[in-house]
Design a binder for these strands. Structure first.
Lengths: 229, 229
DNA sequence: CAACGTAATTTTGAATTCATAATTAAGTCA
DNA sequence: TGACTTAATTATGAATTCAAAATTACGTTG
């Protein structure tokens, strides 16, 4: 699908969906808090109509919850949600690995190899922010190689929901080390174009991530016993 | 999650999303045609604001396409889309089968058994409409037994997209017979709580469905050479 | 002074309005 | 007649307005 010639005209509400997603992922809008409609309208210089349209779309992605007559609230990442989302994400990533092995071209494998090296470097530098960015890029590159737009959309929507839990702030040294090991395997199976093995590895990778996030959520909960802000 | 006590207050835009989905699934809004904004506002007795909010959400589900300054269009089911969606749906249904086997209770298996019997009856009566409704109920029952709301939402969103292609109108006798056979296996593995086998069967079932829909789409295309309405 | 009830204020949901873009219709000229 | 311009009409996107609901502030009473 070549869109290089197409003039991309972005509608206002679509632009706002992007902005709101960024605000939520950067924790500028914090989980559990109310979405300040008026303030955002002022900040973005738009009226309430397009902002409210964007909020409806955000709600369909599960990033905000609309309470009738009470406004929009940034959703919390709960244990239940994590236990639901990661298995689904695992199945989708496994599929993406399988498809990628069948369709990836050599140049793309080299790209992933480069990203992988960068990721290892970030790990050695203990640069968590850089690590997570490259990590995402790797998963995204595999997704791209799968050549399935629906799969990409579904995966990214679910990833987004999990990224609200800023678990990147807390990943144990041993988990981090394991994750890098898993990524070694991922690269290996991808380069060998072994779809079944890659799928299996990605599935395990996701489950380990799930366990890690759950552990972090529990530690968070125990830190602040009151559920209320 | 017990919501029996909760007062469910549905917002207008949410109600409209439901109505629009129904209109599209019933082909009262035909794929490729423009969504008649004004007409729908009159019919539903609402202003453009909530209707347009609903259309934005519909677009996020891929049921309509928003063309800036040109309005909303009901999306067509294309071959490319079918080739994309069914593999994803297959992976998700496979997961739902696996989870269902781990979590389903005896009473639910009996429910599925009853539905299955109804489905076979519909097949023997060659009642395609009834068959498809019960078919859907079976898939839904397995999904419910998986106890994963995220999985349910994802599956149903993708199913919805495929249901726009009213392929139920045309299913060959041999495909129909095969589908019933596949469902026999599905029931068997579910009753035996054999997650791996059920996943495998559902995956194959989805792929056969994909092939059937593709075949139908091609026959449609050859019938009316002009792509335009 | 704590709990309740009432009034003022703010926020929300949805209709309306308005500027702009797209489409259609009409007119012009080769 | 048919291609191209230009004007009229319609539809779209977004701001504004308005009624209703929720929240807050205040006062009253036991």
């Amino acid at each position: 699908m070549d869109t290089s010639q197409t003039i991309v005209r972005k509608s206002l509400h679509h632009e706002l969906v992007d902005r709101l997603q960024t605000l939520i992922l950067n924790s500028e809008l914090k989980p559990g808090t109310k979405v300040p409609e008026k303030l955002l309208c002022d900040q973005f210089g738009v009226s309430r109509t397009p902002l409210r349209e964007a909020l409806k779309v955000m709600a369909s992605y599960g990033l905000v919850r609309l309470e009738p007559n009470r406004g929009a609230w940034v959703t919390q990442v709960t244990e239940e949600e994590v236990e639901e989302v990661f298995p689904v994400l695992g199945a989708l990533e496994a599929l993406s690995g399988q498809l990628a092995c069948a369709r990836i071209i050599d140049a793309e494998i080299e790209e992933v190899r480069t990203l992988h090296a960068q990721m290892v470097q970030s790990y050695e530098n203990r640069d968590l922010d850089a690590y997570f960015i490259v990590n995402q890029q790797i998963h995204r590159a595999i997704l791209m190689a799968a050549r399935n737009g629906t799969l990409t959309t579904s995966c990214e929507a679910l990833s987004l929901r999990m990224q609200r839990a800023r678990y990147l702030a807390n990943m144990s040294e041993s988990r981090w080390s394991d994750a890098v090991q898993e990524h070694e395997k991922i690269l290996h199976h991808l380069a060998a174009r072994d779809g079944a093995k890659l799928a299996e590895t990605l599935l395990h990778h996701m489950d380990a991530k799930r366990a890690s996030v759950i552990k972090w959520l529990r530690s968070q909960r125990d830190d602040s016993p009151s559920g209320l802000a």
